Amino acid sequence: MKIGIIGIGAIGGTLARKLCAAGHEVRVANSKGPEGVRAFAEEIHAIPADTQGAIDGADVVILSIPFPAVAKLPKGSFDSLPESVPVIDTGNYYPGMRDPHIPEIEAGKVESLWVAEQIGRPIIKDWNAEQTRIALTRAKPDAAPTKRDAMGETYATLGPNPSHAAIVASNRLINAVE
């Protein structure tokens, strides 16, 4: 599977490492461009890319950047991505801690909807809790199937495209990181 990961911090970097170890083709990007991710990419056998390079041709795109950075992504970055490709967001909104207050969210808009509006397409939220980060750092790439493999129906409720949920919940992706 071809996976583009935008952001190589604690969660994005761990996902990239685990997915590369599981044999996926992983392209990594951050705000510093290909040179800013080159050393990390070489270490884990990923492909360094800019944001568009991580998106183009991917079977799955993972956004793993600080919440307010989503609004700073180049406009139209996801426009050429086929609708069949799921976009997974690992971000959390931390107002007053790391993130500035976002009026729409403070007024009650759901974080996932705000992110989807910023990038112009639906998203699936996953791998965005502290417990998940801990599990990722302890996980083995060759893990046996887990309870999570049966969560396809749960994922389907997180986005408008059931095929996205099936891809995210599939053994090909989930077992690589759990």
Results as ranks from 00 to 15, higher is better:
91 G>Y: 02
26 V>C: 04
65 I>H: 04
69 A>I: 03
61 V>H: 02
30 N>K: 12
61 V>N: 01
28 V>W: 04
111 E>R: 14
104 E>H: 07
116 A>E: 13
43 E>T: 12
72 K>C: 07
42 E>S: 13
66 P>Q: 11
63 L>K: 08
34 P>I: 08
36 G>P: 06
120 G>A: 06
63 L>A: 06
26 V>I: 07
90 T>Y: 01
83 E>N: 12
94 Y>N: 01
66 P>H: 12
59 D>Y: 03
109 K>Q: 15
67 F>D: 03
67 F>W: 08
45 H>A: 15
121 R>S: 05
25 E>W: 10
115 V>C: 01
44 I>M: 04
31 S>A: 14
50 D>H: 00
70 V>P: 00
25 E>L: 13
121 R>Q: 09
99 D>V: 10
48 P>C: 03
92 N>S: 12
66 P>I: 05
113 L>W: 08
69 A>V: 11
106 E>T: 13
38 R>L: 11
99 D>W: 09
53 G>W: 04
59 D>M: 03
116 A>V: 01
110 V>P: 00
121 R>F: 06
94 Y>Q: 07
57 G>N: 04
40 F>E: 05
71 A>V: 10
89 D>Y: 09
34 P>Q: 09
28 V>F: 03
90 T>S: 09
47 I>M: 14
56 D>V: 14
59 D>S: 14
59 D>A: 13
83 E>W: 01
33 G>L: 10
36 G>E: 10
30 N>A: 11
82 P>D: 13
38 R>V: 00
71 A>D: 13
39 A>N: 10
109 K>W: 01
70 V>E: 09
112 S>D: 13
115 V>G: 03
51 T>F: 13
108 G>E: 11
86 P>V: 10
58 A>H: 09
106 E>Y: 02
100 P>Q: 09
111 E>A: 15
86 P>H: 10
47 I>P: 00
82 P>I: 12
51 T>K: 12
72 K>E: 15
34 P>F: 07
75 K>Q: 15
49 A>G: 00
95 P>G: 03
70 V>I: 15
88 I>P: 01
74 P>M: 05
101 H>N: 14
54 A>D: 03
48 P>Q: 04
90 T>K: 00
74 P>E: 02
26 V>L: 05
69 A>G: 02
90 T>E: 02
95 P>Q: 11
80 S>E: 14
117 E>R: 11
27 R>C: 09
101 H>T: 15
40 F>C: 04
79 D>R: 14
94 Y>M: 09
79 D>A: 15
119 I>E: 05
87 V>H: 07
64 S>G: 10
70 V>C: 12
107 A>D: 14
90 T>L: 04
112 S>W: 07
60 V>H: 05
78 F>E: 06
51 T>G: 01
111 E>W: 12
106 E>D: 15
72 K>Y: 02
56 D>E: 15
29 A>E: 02
57 G>W: 07
57 G>R: 05
81 L>F: 10
31 S>F: 11
84 S>T: 15
115 V>R: 11
34 P>H: 07
108 G>P: 02
71 A>P: 07
69 A>S: 14
53 G>R: 04
25 E>G: 12
48 P>G: 06
111 E>P: 07
32 K>W: 13
76 G>I: 03
57 G>P: 00
102 I>G: 00
83 E>M: 10
